[in-house]
């Protein structure tokens, strides 16, 4: 048995058991910070949204109680119709964004020199340096009746009458959404293309896979989780961001976000909460389905 006072060989001090410092002992708990953050600032407010949605409405606020009046108000009015329509139009925005954005992402990955790729992607971040409200509002002089698009087309003699459907309609909202959110498909697609191995396009050349087969058999399956993530992001914003239909929409061309905002303006807080709760439930359902289909954890680790 060695005893604790043994000075060991050559008079070296005895080896003491390793004692982690306070900082090291605390560091284990640091891993819980994200959970605390998410509970405090996401889960709790979301839960409160559901709770508030069944409260009784008062003149300027609401009081505890249980009533489904807000839901009744939502489901048995034009709001439901508008909500469903906004989901449909969001899907169109997603589809248009995908058709424009994903080819850009593939192109950047495939054809732009490696060193320049990140710079090209950075270009798509530039619009976000400008406040969204300015960006959307700046579309008005472009899309309106005597705006840039109509003036140009008239001057070129391509149209006789200005196209009025470009703004204050669903079309206007879709244009705004595509211009605002399409970069997210570029980012998501760009990241998703990391899952595509280096020599795969040359293998396709060698095996004789044409552009269509290449897209459906190789690119799409590999990039699916990333594409889905980008699509969900655009869909969520499409039905949730009130700003775009507020500026570019018109009668009937609203989305869930705008319905909630209008409810808040009308001081009907339970209704606003109910709309939010419904929106949230819809999206959670969507994410669940997406996760089951594509395993969304793959977005961050595409090769595994």
């Amino acid at each position: 048995m060695t005893n604790a006072t043994d000075t060991g060989l050559g008079g070296l001090p005895p080896v003491e058991p390793f004692r982690p410092s306070l900082r090291e002992r605390m560091s284990g708990w640091a891993f819980y910070i994200p959970i605390v953050f998410m509970v405090l600032f996401f889960a709790l407010p979301m839960a409160l949204t559901v709770v508030f949605s069944v409260f009784e409405r008062t003149m300027f606020w609401m009081e505890p109680g249980f009533t489904l009046q807000a839901y009744e108000n939502f489901f048995f009015s034009a709001r439901l119709e508008n909500f469903l329509a906004s989901m449909g139009y969001s899907l169109i925005s997603v589809a248009v964004s995908f058709c424009i954005g994903f080819p850009i992402a593939v192109f950047v990955r495939k054809s732009v020199p490696q060193a320049a790729q990140h710079r090209v992607v950075l270009l798509f971040i530039l619009p976000f340096m400008v406040s969204e409200i300015i960006r959307i509002f700046a579309l008005r002089p472009v899309l309106q009746r005597n705006g840039l698009v109509n003036e140009t087309l008239t001057s070129l003699g391509l149209i006789d009458e200005p196209i009025t459907a470009l703004i204050y309609t669903h079309t206007g909202v879709i244009i705004g959404e595509v211009l605002s959110f399409m970069p997210f498909i570029v980012f998501a697609g760009f990241l998703a293309m990391e899952a595509v191995p280096k020599f795969i396009f040359e293998v396709c050349d060698d095996l004789g896979a044409g552009p269509v087969r290449r897209f459906t058999d190789v690119i799409l399956p590999l990039a699916a989780p990333g594409i889905f993530a980008g699509a969900v992001f655009i869909f969520v914003n499409g039905i949730g961001v009130a700003l775009i239909p507020n500026i570019l929409g018109g009668p009937g061309a609203v989305n869930a976000g705008l319905i909630a905002t209008q409810a808040i303006s009308a001081l009907d807080f339970p209704l606003a909460m109910a709309v939010s709760a419904i929106m949230m439930a819809t999206l959670m359902g969507l994410l669940y389905v997406g996760h089951r289909l594509f395993d969304l954890t793959k977005i961050l680790a595409p090769m595994n």
Binding site: P197, F199, I200, D206, L207
Partner: peptide, 17 residues
């Protein structure tokens, strides 16, 4: 490449994952 009587084996990372 696919119309030639050749086929290619690449360095690595060339399988469909």
């Amino acid at each position: 490449p696919d119309k030639r009587p050749t086929s290619m084996v690449f360095q690595a990372y060339a399988l469909f994952p």
